[in-house]
């Protein structure tokens, strides 16, 4: 697994549950306490070990932990870059949903060896979509639910999200848009230094 993913998990655990929790999870999983380097590649087993240890130590189901990770990735101000890069997907939440088809390729343009899940949108009409999340390692679907929830907040949209399990190799997420502008979204300017 790419170090960016492992490092994200590490930062999420440390920022959310504290340095002490991370230390214990690292020990429990046999990971160096210093953790992961963002630009290096790691054995997939290391990622699984950390997630298993975190679920055990925090007494939380895997799915919930992964969903919280997704929310953290978008809403943590320390990693504003992720939210901004996702907001480039479009001016509205619906535009953003449709941009998810490209997310895999977009991510690869930035980090060529980053193995992001492939996302496939299907528009069911009437404000309902389904997203198929495909990756050799199941679980990314739950992360995406967290990402979508945080992005809906970011756009000020009110949505219902439901992880509907796996069909073949894909995890299916159902998205229902209840109200496109339910609340005031967060500001987004194309220019980084825009005031």
């Amino acid at each position: 697994m790419h170090g960016l993913i492992n490092r994200s998990i590490q930062c999420f655990l440390r920022d959310t549950y504290g340095a002490e929790a991370w230390t214990q999870i690292a020990q429990l999983s046999g990971t160096d306490e210093a953790g992961f380097e963002a630009m290096l590649l790691y054995d997939d087993a290391a990622t699984g070990a950390v997630l298993d240890a975190a679920a055990k130590h925090l007494e939380k189901p895997h799915d919930m932990l992964l969903e919280d990770l997704g929310t953290y990735l978008v809403s943590n101000p320390q990693i504003e870059a992720v939210r901004r890069l996702l907001r480039f997907g479009g001016a509205s939440f619906v535009d953003f949903l449709h941009s998810l088809d490209e997310l895999h390729d977009r991510a690869r343009l930035a980090v060529p060896d980053l193995d992001m899940p492939a996302l496939e949108m299907r528009d069911h009409g009437g404000g309902a979509w389904s997203i198929a999340v495909t990756h050799p390692h199941p679980g990314f679907g739950h992360v995406m639910v967290g990402v979508l929830r945080a992005m809906a907040d970011d756009y000020g949209a009110l949505v219902l999200l439901d992880h509907q399990g796996r069909v073949d190799k894909a995890e299916i997420i159902r998205v229902e848009l209840l109200e496109a502008s339910f609340a005031e979204g967060r500001d987004f300017h194309l220019g980084l230094r825009a005031s």
Binding site: A38, A81, F88, V111, L190, G191
Partner: peptide, 21 residues
């Protein structure tokens, strides 16, 4: 243009991570 801005920003983010390392 928007794609270019996206790339510039993605590049800067990746660069910052690499620089840190």
């Amino acid at each position: 243009t928007v794609e270019m801005l996206y790339l510039v920003e993605a590049n800067a983010a990746v660069h910052a991570v690499s620089q840190d390392l």
